[in-house]
Design a protein around this nucleic acid. Sequence first.
DNA 1: TACCCCAGCGCG
DNA 2: AAAGCGCGCTGGGGTA
Length: 557
Amino acid sequence: MYVVLARTPDGIVAHRLDDNGRPADEPELIDEEDLADWADLENDESNPRWVWDDSRKWYPQLLEGGVRIARCVDLRLSHSILRLSTLTAGSRLAMAPKGPWDSNIPLDLAPQPVADPHESLFDFHEAAGIDEPDPVAEFLLQREAIAQSSDPNRLNLLLAAESAGGLVAVEMKHGGLPWDADIHRAMLTSTLGPRPVNGERPAALEALLVEMRAALDGAEINPDSPAELLKALRRAGIPAESTRSWDLREIKHPVIEPLLTYKKLSRLMTANGWHWLDTWVVDGRFRPDYVPGGAATGRWGASGGGALQLPKQIRGAVVADEGWKFVVADASQLEPRILSAMSADRRMAEAGRGDLYEGIVATGAVATRAEAKLALLGAMYGATTGESGRLMPRLAQGFPQAIAMVEAAARAGERGEVVSTQLGRSSPLPSSQWQDIQAAANLDAASEARARSHSRSWGRFTRNFIVQGTAAEWALCWMANLRNALWTLTDGALTDGPHLVFFLHDEVIVHTPAELADDVVAIVRKAAADAGRQIFGALPVDFPVTAVTVDNYGAAK
DNA sequence: TACCCCAGCGCG
DNA sequence: AAAGCGCGCTGGGGTA
């Protein structure tokens, strides 16, 4: 059973469809304020798969009302996959001109739970000259595209995982990441000094500035402006090429050490200092917007507060509630394992029985673990120079099947072709500018070099796309399985029991009552093993998970 | 004032 | 031990 929800000028309309997508009864009109209660009843009666345009527009108010959703079809997320996938290339959906399902309506125009819920959306559409999109029609169009595709099963798994991710994203924002502002502030004070007033430098930065001036015989220096900093260094006879820490580290001069420290502390203050804390941590929770499918590869993005770049430095401020714990889990060496699974390289799978890098050393392909790691990174990113590039051929010799797969993806991208992940998410086409550059390749030597460079660059993107994208699919399946299993542990609202509070590409955090932490760890591991089987079938590729139970995120290494 | 781009750096 | 992939954010500095 499906229940498709739509907002109309008259209110919310619910369409019940049977498993064949045919109307099961007359559409039902629901008042906005009754939605959560109505959905709760519907869950009890038929446990449907909910179908709607965008989980971000429906699910928050259900969660507010204490209602959880087991599964859904997020039409917006699904549409963008089906639009590009080579598996659905001939479908009506893919052939149609771009429409409202291809645009991403800004969140602030989405209906809010309290104020008049549909008006802003209609205003937006009216202003933009867009017809109000019909979710039932779109759902049927998507079903048609999937049914006619060359591999409906893979696509169905992908879309289910993507939609589940959409639910998780809303749930994580709803629950929030527990954040202890006092600990954070204490950390800032101890490294930077007391919070400065009206834009002054904190004491620690001021002291470092004094130190730098002394090292420059009293000359002025402004480390906050890269351009001025470079000038100041050159005035002092320091041959700096850039002001990047990585480059500065190579220079021997007394000003360098305080400068590097300054940069580090200054970064802490601007990115995650007092202002960040005021802006992003409310009532002990950090609630960024997560953006499923935010990257072309299917990885999530995030906006607000830099959720996907929380420095290790401040993770100690992520503290579980009293009587609760965090289970912090990450998939070890995920991308190289994905590489071995999708290429069905049994030799590499065998090497991944334990630590994958050690396993590769054991085959004799390379000499050390560090070399194995570097070589694999090179294979997945397309390194051509440096040690990584140098080691690549050795890997190709030892694991021809795996390397041939990424090489083929790179060649396809260089020709401007599309590549796809294991479950059928396809890469975008290179830009028209890229095409123009290729078309102009035969004009002269400079054009040819330019075309070649852009071609190679897009090849590195497609090479990485298939691995990063398939890893993202694995992570989504992992999370979807995890979410379902956690739900069985307790009754009640989302935040009454173990629930996901953070996700970072190959890592999750579950906030859980302490007494359930061991159960959660077991669930996290099983969910990972299941994800591997769902995507790769019986292939003997392991996806081991490192899981620790901690009181704060900083303690998770 | 508003906006855009760049350099730099945090994360995987 | 290095420059190859994917992101978001800040502050500086320029332009309109």
